[in-house]
């Protein structure tokens, strides 16, 4: 079962195609990182997922149902946008009371428990809080909804490192305990590396790549090797990147480590070592040659 599914979603604003036949799938229980540079269409995609926007073409399904104007689905979804919106003058308590009546799944006990995690004055008007505190307030309320799907748009912007860790810890706790599915949008890949088990890259309204992190890491391997004088690399390697420093060559190869090691051994290298790849490196080498602004999602 998929938590979120976008099938061929297209959306155009005044002639500008923000989403272009976007296909995206978030499996249930996954923590999905949606990455892309500014203007790639992340927020537009999220606004389709929350039911704000109606696609020009294609389907947007949450928990296997169309989300647009679907009350029963929205009851099970929580979203924290980049800049959360609250009623003017409302405090966290006011918003909690509002949510408590609107969302049937709102968990008052959970809200009380989370008080210790978010050191906020819940009676203070939220607009008077700092940006980071407003984000905390949004997390507090969203987690108290006990959502089956949690959609986060640039969620930890403005949070200090301690609070980031705290927030991720709470989110991951929900994922582990309740099987909550999480979609996290960010323009920064490094931020997602530690928490996501699935990654999708958005560029110009299209999904360039969508894989589980395990798949990515299992199918892309970095080798450091030194070949004898005059020896050549074996045939049939899918080389994503190659560099050399003296006789030591660094190869990024697409394929499984065992198979690639076996193949490279046939060239009788003087030195051969498989090295771990970061997500960042994978994306650089997967996307780097494709004229995409990959650097934008790595900085």
């Amino acid at each position: 079962m998929n938590a979120i599914e976008l099938k061929g979603v297209t959306k155009t604003f005044d002639g500008f195609k923000a989403l272009d036949k976007l296909d995206l799938t978030v499996p249930k229980g996954a923590v999905y990182g949606l990455v892309g540079p500014n203007g790639a269409g992340k927020t537009t995609a999220i606004r389709h997922m929350t039911g704000m926007l109606r696609p020009d073409a294609g389907k947007v399904l949450l928990l296997e149902e169309p989300v647009y104007e679907n009350v029963s689905v929205k009851e099970r979804v929580a979203c924290i946008p980049d800049e959360p919106w609250f009623f003017s003058g409302a405090s966290t308590r006011d918003m909690m009371e509002f949510y408590r009546e609107i969302y049937p799944r709102f968990d008052q006990g959970r809200y009380e428990k989370l008080r210790s995690a978010f050191p906020l004055d819940e009676l203070r008007p939220i607009r008077r809080l700092s940006r980071g505190m407003r984000k905390q307030s949004a997390f507090w309320l969203a987690l108290a909804l006990r959502p089956e799907v949690l959609i986060l748009d640039e969620p930890v912007d403005g949070l200090d490192p301690v609070m980031r860790r705290q927030v991720w810890s709470l989110v991951m706790g929900d994922v582990a305990e309740n099987g909550t599915s999480v979609l996290v949008s960010s323009h920064n890949l490094r931020e997602l590396e530690d928490v996501c088990d699935h990654i999708g890259i958005l560029q110009r309204g299209r999904c360039l790549l969508e894989k589980s992190v395990d798949d990515l890491q299992e199918t892309t391997v970095k080798f450091a090797l030194a070949l004898p004088e005059g020896a050549a690399l074996p045939e049939g390697l899918d080389i994503l990147h190659e560099s050399a420093a003296g006789r030591l060559r660094t190869l990024i190869l697409r394929g499984r480590e065992e198979e690639l090691t076996e193949k490279l051994q046939s060239a009788q290298p003087l030195f051969l070592e498989a090295q771990p790849l970061t997500l960042e490196e994978i994306f650089i080498y997967e996307m780097g040659g494709a004229d995409y602004a990959v650097k934008d999602i790595l900085l």
Binding site: R47, M52, E69, S72, C79, E83, W85, I102, Y103
Partner: peptide, 15 residues
């Protein structure tokens, strides 16, 4: 406002 619009649209209610 797109933010408040998004908020209202995300509520489990018909718009």
């Amino acid at each position: 406002r797109s933010r408040s619009c998004a908020f209202a649209a995300s509520l489990p209610l018909k718009r």
